[in-house]
Simulated assay, not measured.
Amino acid sequence: MKLVKVYVTLKNSVLDAQGEAIKSAINTMGYRKLNDVHMGKYFELNFADDYQGLEEDVDKICDDLLANPNIETYRFEIMEDA
């Protein structure tokens, strides 16, 4: 099987309110050298080994469903599932 790991994050131009709240909480805990925190989404998709056009289809799945292209960006890794 092919395992596809998809990482979705906000674009740099979009305010990450959750990331800022987490950063503030971490700073309150005493960790003062933290510069930034960015929240995101993580997905694992499993496909058959012989899937033709996998990369193109994963791109389409991300564009159409997993990420909002107006405010988010994504990247993915394709690997063999153990």
Score class of each variant (00 low, 15 high):
Met79Gln: 12
Asp57Val: 13
Glu55Gly: 11
Leu54Trp: 02
Gln52Tyr: 15
Leu10Arg: 01
Phe47Gln: 04
Gly19Thr: 08
Lys33Arg: 13
Glu77Ile: 06
Glu72Arg: 00
Gly53Glu: 03
Ala82Trp: 00
Ser24Met: 13
Leu66Thr: 01
Ile61Asn: 05
Val8Asp: 04
Gly53Met: 02
Tyr74Arg: 01
Ala48Gly: 14
Ile61Tyr: 07
Arg75Asn: 05
Asp50Val: 11
Ala21Phe: 03
Phe47Ser: 05
Asp64Glu: 09
Leu65His: 11
Asp63Trp: 06
Val14Asn: 07
Tyr42Ala: 14
Glu56Leu: 13
Ile26Ala: 01
Val8Pro: 01
Ala25Tyr: 14
Val8Gly: 03
Val58Asn: 10
Lys11Ala: 00
Thr9Cys: 08
Leu34Glu: 12
Gly19Ser: 09
Asn27Ser: 09
Asn68Phe: 04
Ala25Gly: 15
Glu56Gln: 14
Asp63His: 07
Thr9Gln: 09
Glu55Ile: 15
Asn35Ser: 15
Glu56Arg: 14
Asp81Gln: 03
Cys62Lys: 08
Met79Thr: 12
Asp59Arg: 09
Phe43Met: 04
Met79Asp: 12
Asp81Leu: 02
Cys62Thr: 10
Asp49Pro: 10
Asn70Phe: 05
Tyr42Arg: 13
Asn68Leu: 05
Val8Gln: 02
Asp63Pro: 03
Met39Lys: 07
Val4Ser: 10
Lys2Val: 06
Phe76Leu: 00
Met1Asn: 09
Leu54Asn: 03
Leu10Val: 03
Tyr31Gln: 12
Ile61Leu: 11
Asp50Ser: 13
Glu72Asn: 00
Asp36Met: 01
Leu66Glu: 02
Gly40Leu: 05
Tyr51Arg: 15
Thr9Leu: 09
Asn68Thr: 03
Met39Gly: 06
Asp59Met: 07
Val8His: 01
Cys62Gly: 08
Thr28Val: 11
Glu44Gln: 12
Pro69Asp: 01
Leu10His: 03
Asn12Pro: 07
Glu77Trp: 05
Met1Val: 06
Ile26Tyr: 01
Val14Trp: 04
Asn12Arg: 10
Leu3Trp: 13
Lys33Asn: 15
Ala67Asn: 08
Asp81Glu: 04
Asp59Asn: 08
Leu34Asp: 12
Ile71Trp: 07
Glu44Tyr: 11
Ile26Phe: 00
Asp64Asn: 09
Gly53Ile: 07
Lys33Ala: 15
Asn68Gln: 06
Leu3Ser: 14
Asp81Phe: 03
Tyr51Ile: 14
Asp64Cys: 10
Ile22Met: 10
